[in-house]
């Protein structure tokens, strides 16, 4: 299991991503994170988060993008290919 490690340097500060560790469970992750990120007293606290529990948001829709008014605002190539493949793999329709 991979745990992402977030480290708080001083009380009151934000936790910042510091790296990751691999451990079979939370107990081992706890032991190794202490050793790796705390043995010199360099951290006030750590957050150990299973990687799968991190829900990432990094695709931002741009509402002010005005490209829809232009030809280059539409890229249909990929979806057209997908639609054609889908059509050809399903049963033919009587015409």
């Amino acid at each position: 299991m991979i745990f992402e490690v977030f480290r708080q340097e001083k009380k009151g500060q934000a936790f910042a991503h510091a790296g990751s560790i691999e451990a079979p469970d939370a107990a081992f992750a706890d032991a190794w994170a202490r050793e790796q990120y705390g043995r010199r007293g360099e951290s006030a606290a750590l957050w150990l988060v299973p990687r799968d529990a991190v829900h990432q948001v990094n695709d931002w829709a741009d509402e002010f993008d005005l490209k829809y008014r232009r030809v280059d605002g539409y890229s249909i190539k990929g979806r057209l290919k997908e639609a054609r493949e889908r059509a050809s793999s399903t049963a033919p329709v009587d015409r």
Binding site: G19, S20, I21, E22, E35, Q36
Partner: peptide, 13 residues
């Protein structure tokens, strides 16, 4: 050795 562990982890990803 700790450095090695951290760096191998990055390469694994």
């Amino acid at each position: 050795v700790g450095h090695a562990q951290l760096i191998y982890r990055v390469a694994e990803d």
